Amino acid sequence: MRTISIISQKGGAGKTTLAIHLAVAAMQSGLATLILDTDPQATASQWYQWRGGGEPDVIDCAAHALLARKVQQASELGAELVVIDTPPHADIMAREACRVADLVLIPCRPQAFDLAAIEATADLVRAADKPAFVLFMGGPPRAPAIYREARELIEGTDRLETRKVAVAPVMLTQRAAYHHSSGEGRTASEFEPTSKAAEEVATLWTWTRAQVDV
């Protein structure tokens, strides 16, 4: 079994959007997948209610002391992939999520304040010594200069380089399908299978799957 933890100290970075789209993409590829919702706001759990249950399962886990056991139980029950959705501004839960992860994804909007917040998250993943990638979320679909400048800013930050945090070559941009589908308990690939958003998710999953070898 593989575990992907989605961590950002910045609220509104798109953690839950990333979590549910990765989990559904994994499920659609044939993997037994579940989401561990560790955010007290329970956004992923709310999405699951809108979805009416079914797969992928979403399990609440607001107590950091229970996270490792929940992951172990998922493995024992036959899960092949666990996606952990974490809350912002929660160092203890984020550290625990890093500890149990095979891969850490750090969603980030390509904006100054969001980019500055990456260092705080990078501090949390350093001690875990796990592969970590910044993944741009919610930026304009056609703005190569914005992404180039954001990437250069991240890659040129010595403090991030020493933490081995790289920029993922994939992203989920600002598209209506992400928002409309979530409100119906679905994802972009389920809501509009031929949309640009669905293409982005497919590319994201192909890349992510290669990182964790599932």
Rank of each mutant, 00 (worst) to 15 (best):
D91P: 06
A202G: 09
A90W: 06
D60C: 14
R126C: 10
E161I: 08
L172D: 03
V104L: 09
E80G: 02
L172T: 06
E76Y: 04
Q46A: 15
H89P: 03
R175S: 10
I7W: 01
V83M: 06
G139I: 01
A122G: 13
G156F: 03
P107H: 12
E190H: 03
T206S: 05
I35P: 08
A145C: 02
M93I: 09
Q73F: 10
R95H: 02
A122W: 08
I4S: 07
K164Y: 06
G139C: 02
A26F: 15
A122D: 09
D60W: 10
T157L: 05
T33D: 09
L115H: 12
T38H: 05
G156Y: 06
L22H: 07
H180R: 08
Q211A: 10
D60E: 11
R186H: 13
L105Y: 02
D39Y: 06
P131D: 01
A210D: 09
R99K: 08
G183R: 15
R142A: 13
E76K: 12
P110H: 01
I35D: 11
T206C: 15
H179P: 01
D91N: 13
E199R: 10
E80W: 11
C61Q: 11
A116V: 11
D57R: 15
Q41D: 04
H180S: 04
L115G: 05
A198C: 10
A143G: 14
A74M: 05
Q111W: 07
G139T: 04
G14C: 13
V82N: 13
K10T: 10
G12L: 00
S45I: 05
A25C: 07
Q211R: 11
P107A: 09
L18F: 07
P144S: 03
V134R: 03
R159P: 00
I106V: 07
A23Q: 11
A65T: 13
V83L: 04
S8A: 09
P144V: 00
L124I: 14
E161R: 13
D60R: 11
F133C: 03
A122K: 04
V214I: 13
K164C: 07
S75I: 14
H21R: 11
L103C: 03
E80T: 12
P131S: 01
T33M: 00
A74Y: 04
P169C: 07
H89T: 14
F133A: 06
L153W: 12
V170K: 05
V83F: 08
Q28C: 02
A42G: 12
K10L: 03
A117M: 02
D114W: 06
G14M: 08
I92P: 00
P88F: 03
R159C: 04
P56H: 07
D129N: 05
I7S: 05
E184S: 13
W47A: 04
D158P: 06
P141K: 01
L153T: 05
A26C: 15
F113L: 13
Q49T: 14
I84L: 06
Q174Y: 00
L34Q: 15
A74W: 03
E190P: 10
S75F: 08
E161M: 05
A143L: 01
A19E: 01
R148F: 02
A65H: 14
A117S: 07
A116S: 14
A197L: 06
